[in-house]
């Protein structure tokens, strides 16, 4: 129980610190915050000094920093993160729709990776030490070295431009998912396969597999009912780590395939210096990442009490 409370404290602490850093962005960057706000509202930037001072007061920018932070935080918690400088629409709505797109992208990619990894990883474990194992292991390990900004254009060239089978960019339907998801799935698949293989080998050597076989279960049934189930836990942990990573880490793939997701939104807002969108994007990604990691940790601890002991001693 103490462990859970401590994790929650870390979660809240991280979020507060992260939101303070994010709140500071307009103050850390060179230039007057008032002018930055004006930049989003009017095109004429030659405002006379008196008006500038009045605006500063009316926006409350002359108050102590911590007071301003508190106001910003309260508004943010109500879902009000301001208007985008470039699109002039509420940032929260933009983040909401982008986050939905990215979640679909990330989960589909990871599911593809998971299914492929369970297949190849188990196969490698069963054929341990034979050519099949060597081939699977070395090929999947090589996948780690493939940059996604190289794989994506190559896939576009082959499947979209030459075969014309799939769209090369955009976000219009299930067929738009194929190429981006394949690109994103490759690296996690490599890691998942290696972990599945390792944990499957452990499971296959354990006595309960021998016992199940001795009871007369066929090899396939033993694998599925006893092997895969036990081998799954470490892979699932890895899955959630990657989910947290891919929600923000798919920037390059989203840019290449023009997918209106979180990564591209954040990238464009940085390029356009659209501060409210940057703030909202960073804080929601940080929040999600920390939340997913904490939930995984908690879930893992609840399922497996030995982890809890290890956390305390190590």
């Amino acid at each position: 129980m103490f462990f859970l409370i401590r994790r929650l404290a870390v979660l809240v602490g991280t979020l507060v610190i992260a939101s303070f850093v994010v709140f500071l962005i307009p103050y850390l960057t060179p230039g007057d915050p008032v002018r930055k706000i004006l930049r989003g509202r009017v095109s004429d930037l030659n405002v006379d000094p008196v008006t500038l001072e009045n605006l500063r007061r009316s926006y409350g920018l002359d108050r102590p920093l911590l007071t301003q932070f508190w106001d910003w935080l309260v508004k943010a918690l109500r879902g009000d993160l301001g208007l985008s400088y470039t699109r002039r629409s509420p940032v929260t709505e933009m983040i909401g729709s982008a986050l939905g797109v990215t979640t679909v992208l990330a989960i589909t990619s990871l599911l593809i990776a998971l299914v492929a990894a369970l297949l190849f990883g188990s196969l490698a474990a069963v054929k341990r030490g034979r050519p099949t194992d060597t081939a699977i292991t070395s090929i999947t390990q090589g996948f780690v070295a493939i940059p996604e900004y190289w794989l994506a254009p190559v896939l576009i060239l082959v499947f979209a431009l030459q075969l014309g089978a799939l769209p090369s960019a955009g976000w219009r339907g299930p067929e738009s998912l194929v190429l981006p998801c394949l690109t994103l799935a490759l690296r996690p698949m490599s890691y998942f396969t290696q972990v599945t293989r390792a944990s499957m080998i452990d499971v296959l050597e354990s006595p309960h597999i021998t016992a199940a076989r001795a009871r007369g279960l066929t090899f396939g049934a033993t694998m599925i009912r006893h092997g895969l189930r036990n081998a799954l836990l470490p892979v699932i942990t890895l899955f959630s780590v990657w989910l947290a990573g891919l929600l923000g880490g798919s920037v390059v793939v989203e840019v290449i395939f023009s997918i209106p997701g979180m990564g591209r939104l954040l990238y464009e807002s940085v390029i356009n210096n659209d501060i409210p969108t940057i703030q909202a994007g960073v804080i929601s990604l940080v929040g999600l990442a920390v939340l997913i990691t904490t939930l995984t940790d908690m879930g893992y601890t609840l399922i497996n009490p030995t982890v809890r002991a290890a956390h305390v001693s190590a």
Binding site: I25, G248, G249, V251, I278, L285, A289, T293
Partner: peptide
Amino acid sequence: MRLTDVLLAFPEIIVALFLVAV
């Protein structure tokens, strides 16, 4: 160790985008 937990959750690209913004 808690700090590494938090830092590990951020993709490097997002950190880079944030730093470029600042």
